[in-house]
Computed example of a mutant assay.
Amino acid sequence: MPQRRHVTRAAFTAAAATALLAFASPAWASSTVPLNPSHKGSTAANFQQECDDERFASLGDNQDGWHFVLPGSDAGSFETLTLTFNDGTGQVEIKIPDASDAYPDYLYSTGGNDPQTIHAYVFTPAGWTLVDGSAVISGTGDKFNLSHTCAGTTPSKSPSPSPSSSESPTPSESPSTSESPNGDTSASPGSSVGGSGGTQGGLPLTGVAATSIALTGVVLIGGGVALMTLRRRRDKITFTS
């Protein structure tokens, strides 16, 4: 009889331990599930927006708020999330939770008698696009969802300032004297050039004027000589009676 009792107790203990392992195994096991494929490529502005979510109370004007959720009780809780966004120039990876992350993010528990961390929030600069994501969960499932968003205002680039007035090109100054093709500079009408041996301020002697003066001088000299000759001849004539 005592031996049978020991066998019965051993069998009961083994059955109890197996039952405990069976109940505990879902909590110990972790699995990785992807983001719902239909939510890839979403922006906060084109998704279902619920800006009255109290978790978005601290959302900045230039930030987008994102709320992710696990569907069904079998999924257990979020352990970690990895999200990939496109910021317009390239891809940015965000892990939740991550205290060193530049973007605010946290996991939110439902509380109660059977708390589950099935909510996840992250704030990003406005205008980003959700590219992909994966989550490590404590239960079982085939995906997690983007529940709703709150879109911020995308900062617009200010246009480059246009000049207040257009500057007209400075007019070129005309020279006071014009240069002849051989490099000589002709005097303007208001200036005077003195000739060699002439009176300062007189007009220059040109070729035609010099010739006329010379001829006039020769004529005058010739005339004077002729008159002197005639006079001498007259003086030599004597009258006889």
Score class of each variant (00 low, 15 high):
79 E>W: 08
63 Q>D: 10
89 T>C: 12
53 D>C: 11
51 C>I: 14
57 A>H: 08
89 T>Y: 11
90 G>I: 07
88 G>I: 00
53 D>W: 09
95 K>R: 09
103 Y>N: 06
97 P>G: 05
100 S>P: 01
110 T>M: 14
66 W>I: 09
90 G>H: 02
58 S>W: 07
104 P>G: 04
106 Y>T: 14
74 D>S: 15
48 Q>W: 07
56 F>V: 04
72 G>V: 04
102 A>M: 12
68 F>N: 00
76 G>M: 07
72 G>T: 14
52 D>H: 13
48 Q>H: 12
107 L>Y: 07
46 N>V: 12
64 D>S: 04
109 S>I: 03
63 Q>F: 06
67 H>S: 08
85 F>H: 01
108 Y>L: 15
103 Y>E: 01
103 Y>I: 01
74 D>Y: 08
68 F>P: 05
110 T>K: 11
68 F>D: 04
102 A>C: 05
69 V>M: 15
95 K>D: 08
96 I>E: 01
49 Q>I: 09
110 T>Q: 15
110 T>Y: 14
104 P>W: 02
84 T>C: 06
61 D>E: 12
103 Y>P: 00
72 G>R: 12
108 Y>R: 13
86 N>M: 07
101 D>K: 04
73 S>Q: 13
87 D>F: 06
102 A>K: 10
92 V>K: 04
73 S>K: 13
98 D>I: 00
91 Q>R: 11
109 S>W: 06
72 G>P: 03
84 T>I: 11
82 T>D: 11
99 A>Y: 02
87 D>R: 11
92 V>Y: 05
101 D>V: 14
95 K>M: 09
83 L>D: 00
84 T>A: 03
49 Q>V: 02
77 S>E: 08
81 L>S: 02
104 P>R: 06
65 G>L: 09
105 D>T: 07
77 S>N: 10
110 T>R: 14
